[in-house]
Design a protein around this nucleic acid. Structure first.
Lengths: 216, 216
DNA sequence: AACATATCTGAGCAATCGGGCAAACTATTT
DNA sequence: AAATAGTTTGCCCGATTGCTCAGATATGTT
């Protein structure tokens, strides 16, 4: 009765350590999202993770490294959301799916989006070395959008700014949720109605493309 | 030959003091915009304003008060931008004018917009008492937009979310200018082409309203 | 049981934080 | 010239910053 998944103690310890790093990263994301890199203290992060300050420093090598790890995690998440499985010849479906995924993600993980926003507002000091892959992705997508325009599938739009606007509107629901909550008079912690938000945002961008079939 | 604008020394001194407060406020806005309230130090603000730290503290009573003054200034600016002189029965003209003013303002004063963004991302701890007038304004505008919809002047939109999206897209050009600069491969300090940005944003929201007359 | 390794704690480091204060300096009014 | 008001400076305070380290404790292996 010592077997089942047959884990050695060493493996279990490694697993625990890995879990703890995850907890720390999440705490870091939340704290950095609220107060930015400069404004966040390692003590606050430690407390958020349920650790003492020296205990935290036992697992991380520096505040900077922890911040960079959090940024790296975010970039991974952005890549994950991008709907690569969608037929790029059906602009309507593509936009619908992208908006839906992005809005649902930012409403579920507002801190992730907010940390990214903090970083960029501060002048992107840590991101500046990482725009590369980001840029490549955007440019690839720009070519797809341009082809939609060229083939007359959608009304003419600036492919790059179109994406920028999509980002702005979707991210906004996480970054400015305090403002939105005040406007909508939501209770603390309450999020706006997802279906409605997704509908409105989708409609906005579909109409911009001349694709407003008003599908349910 | 002691007259001309007939300023007593006392008045000149008062004027100098007032100018200095402006300089300090501007420095504070820039520093707070970059690092948020918690992340900004009074020393950094003082240096930005060309003062020593005790010298700064001679003119302000606390970091908090300075921050609140900066916030108050921002709210005044938002009110100033709102195009109250426009005929509210011409949705197209209204949207065009609002977008133009807002984009030009945020491109000229990115720090103002970024400070507001920092505050809201941090959970709007100082703004929470000030949403009132803000809310009233938004609701007033919501009624106007609803009347457009009811009279069939524009296609149906959610009046509140429509404004939220307008905010998101316009503010974005200030808050995320580091990202946009990277995407557009702008030189440091360079801003994107205003005319083009205004055109694209205007088009986006006009089309959402079914008002795309493609006017020059 | 003995040993090794991983983890945790209390104390403390130098640097910076927001802010105060008396003395020195400057400018203006009498 | 003397008195007054406004401004600037150097020096300091207690608290907090990121981070270290020696020792205590827990955990795992033999």
């Amino acid at each position: 009765m010592d077997d089942e998944p047959k884990l050695t103690n060493r493996e279990k310890a490694a697993h625990r350590r890995h879990e703890l790093r995850r907890t720390i990263r999440q705490a870091a994301i939340e704290e950095f999202a609220l107060h930015g890199f400069t404004g966040s203290s390692t003590l606050a992060i430690a407390q958020r993770a349920g650790l003492s300050k020296p205990q935290l420093h036992y697992y991380i090598s520096s505040k900077e490294e922890l911040y960079e790890e959090a940024l790296e995690y975010i970039l991974g998440e952005w890549r994950r959301i991008y709907p690569s499985t969608i037929d790029p010849d059906r602009p309507g479906a593509f936009i619908r799916e992208y908006v839906r995924r992005k809005i649902e993600y930012v409403l579920d993980n507002p801190s992730v989006s907010r940390l990214f926003a903090s970083e960029v507002i501060a002048g992107a000091p840590f991101m500046s070395r990482r725009w590369g892959p980001f840029l490549a992705n955007i440019r690839k997508e720009s070519r797809v959008i341009r082809s939609w325009v060229d083939r007359g599938l959608i009304r003419p739009v600036d492919p790059l700014l179109f994406q920028v606007h999509l980002w702005a509107v979707t991210q906004n629901y996480a970054d400015f949720s305090a403002q939105i909550g005040a406007l909508m008079q939501l209770r603390p912690g309450e999020t706006p109605d997802r279906g409605h938000v997704v509908d409105e945002v989708t409609t906005l961008f579909l109409r911009a493309c001349g694709l407003d079939e008003k599908a349910a």
